[in-house]
Design a binder for these strands. Structure first.
Lengths: 133, 133
DNA sequence: AATCATTACTTGCAAATTGCAAGTTAATCC
DNA sequence: GGATTAACTTGCAATTTGCAAGTAATGATT
């Protein structure tokens, strides 16, 4: 375990931000939190199919960086929800900038609203009447 | 080599953007390009001290993704400069959002202007009169 | 002329991280 | 009582990273 080590590569804000969320998965979990997902199993159902050990690791790191909090929402058996802190919510402009850039320069990418619909669609395995996405 | 593979984890703009720049180094190279650095050795001199094999790899990837172009600026011996394309320059809002977030939430990080001064300071090993950063 | 320095890399290899599959624990549903 | 769900953990192979050293081409220095 080396997460939350206070060593800085430099004083640059970009470098330090990348030390927290510079990988392929962290911002996707944060995206899901913005979309209203709160539980471990909900994160797993997203279309990118994050590996379960990576998800567990990222949730721990995000918590240790105070980007999210973990709360149990029931006992017997104990189950948890995750929520963005103010620090986590403040990442909205970063995500927005990425979406705008992706939509403009990567063919085949779609807007956040459409993604949100698709993600919710993935969620609703149990409902009977599904509208096409 | 698997760079530039067209496989998409999902249609989400965030996921696809992260497939291009979701690591600890790529955006630092792009930051340096925004600061006016153009050559391999200049990138190496930045305070984060990117490993040379990683730098070579990232420059290749950035070129294959059309975020930068490579041009030789002299023969005998042949030397190269790298420059941002429009697609690369369009990442400015992503960097800006990261800087704002970092400055607000990570203690000890400094503004882009101050970083730029420090980076230029690192550059000028050869000049005689150095002002304190 | 030989050595030193610079630029732009490549190569080798150990260490760390990732990704896939399977297993675990606890409790509820049918 | 067997299946299912939630929230993880564990094992392990494959990939990626990071450090150090090496290389090629050329110009500058002693």
């Amino acid at each position: 375990m080396k997460a939350n080590s206070k060593f800085k590569r430099s004083a640059c804000a970009v470098a330090n931000t990348l030390d927290i969320l510079g990988d392929k998965w962290t911002l996707l979990v944060i995206r899901d939190l913005f979309f209203g997902k709160t539980t471990y199993s909900e994160f797993q159902k997203s279309p990118e199919k994050i590996p379960t050990n990576i998800l567990a690791d990222r949730l721990k790191r995000l918590e240790s960086e105070n980007l999210i909090t973990r709360q149990s929402y029931q006992q017997r058996p104990v189950r948890y929800t995750y929520q963005l802190t103010d620090k986590g919510k403040a990442l909205a402009p970063v995500l927005e900038a990425m979406v705008i850039w992706g939509n403009q320069y990567i063919p085949g990418t779609i807007s956040l609203n459409r993604i949100k619909k698709i993600i919710n669609h993935y969620e609703q395995k149990k409902t009977t009447d599904q509208k096409p996405v």
